[in-house]
Design a protein around this nucleic acid. Structure first.
Lengths: 220, 220
DNA sequence: TCCCTTGTTGTCCAAATGGATAACAAAGCT
DNA sequence: AGCTTTGTTATCCATTTGGACAACAAGGGA
């Protein structure tokens, strides 16, 4: 029998592929509806399968959202490591501090509120946050080593700038009182002042390297 | 007949009183379970009534949580205004920037994530955020007028310090990577640097005036 | 005191959700 | 080709939730 287009709908996907689709769809749904708003049936619909199938891959709804968050954490970390290498210190710093995409940050804001009620999520959040601070610390040290700026305590500066970036992201993504240019201006300005860079050093980095984010399921 | 203890359970509360109880209980529940996790039945149980009664005061669940959030915003704003008056500039600044209570901030973090899906909540959040920035701007201007510090652009400094405070609050309340002393130290340090205060000026304010928060239903 | 307003309860209902299970079908192995 | 594994579907179920409604009872005004 010919392998017609109509046959594709019965084509079975490999286990890994399907699992990946489900996780990605879940993550996208988390960004739109929040952790508490994710529904097995909605995930299934998005993937194009019956909701019972999800049970075949994940023992429970909690396990599913945990897997989705883990995926977000690791894929982000992966792209972050990639960002670090192969960029001059100032570009790396600017790229790290620049505003991240909408759905990207929504997941984190949701994670902040859900962490209090979901211990495994809290653990993953803690891990991710420390990783972020550590990465920024390294970037700061590179800037200092290159003689482009100064920092008496890179770890402390990293913590402060992380707070600024998060707070600005809230103003930008959640509250919506500032736009992306203004958000970047505030964060860049704070970093320049804190690290004794020449004013405008970060704003001049162009184009600002964009931090990665998970891709929507590519097969749909 | 005597007004015995047993009679109290049949005592009918005034409309305003009951409504207030419901709103307060809802707000407490929002802090613990998040906006999406609030259930009419749970609110009713906490207040000690049947869940159907809530419908008598609020047309829908959405209206209830909106009312609860409005209450949080206004009661906070009220206590904030009170904080402003009758305090010297530095104490006001320190009191404003100091870490706020746990359940207090949980509501805001939840609001950040829910605002994207609940327009009225987004509106209230926007209003509140601007109020907060304006209040801090005023405090900064008082500090400058008193000759205790400097600010080229109080509104911009207010925005930055608000971001720092929010970001630090996330690290403290949601992620839990820092304690309350460390949180205050970071925010105070940032403010001292940004406003050219003498180092330690804010940390020396003692006792730091505590910002108010809504009270749990007092009748229970 | 009678009555009307309204705070309050108890109960019912349809919809949605997470989970369980049995039948089925596509792959892969021998 | 037969058989086992496992991806997949179609249903079923118990539970929870927001909402609707009728009956009741406490207060307050005439």
């Amino acid at each position: 029998m010919l392998d017609t287009v109509a046959d594709r709908k019965t084509a079975r996907k490999s286990s890994d592929e399907r699992r990946d689709d489900i996780v990605r769809a879940t993550l996208g749904l988390v960004a739109r509806k929040g952790f508490a708003g994710v529904t097995l049936r909605e995930v299934a619909t998005e993937v194009g399968v019956v909701h019972g199938l999800i049970r075949h891959y994940f023992a429970s709804r909690d396990e599913l959202v945990a897997a989705a968050f883990d995926f977000a954490v690791s894929s982000e970390l992966e792209s972050d490591r990639a960002l670090l290498d192969g960029l001059d210190p100032l570009s790396a710093l600017a790229g790290w501090l620049a505003a991240t995409p909408e759905n990207h940050y929504r997941v984190w804001i949701d994670a902040w509120s859900e962490a209090a009620r979901t211990p495994p999520l809290a653990a993953a959040l803690d891990r991710h946050h420390r990783d972020c601070e550590r990465i920024l610390t390294t970037v700061i040290e590179r800037v200092v080593d290159a003689g482009l700026g100064a920092s008496a305590d890179p770890a402390a500066d990293s913590r402060l700038l992380t707070a600024v970036a998060d707070g600005v992201a809230v103003q930008h993504h959640a509250v919506g009182v500032i736009g992306v240019e203004e958000a970047n201006a505030i964060v860049f300005g704070a970093a320049e002042r804190q690290l004794s860079l020449e004013p405008g050093a970060l704003a001049r980095v162009n184009p600002v390297p964009a931090r990665g984010q998970w891709a929507e399921s590519p097969s749909r």
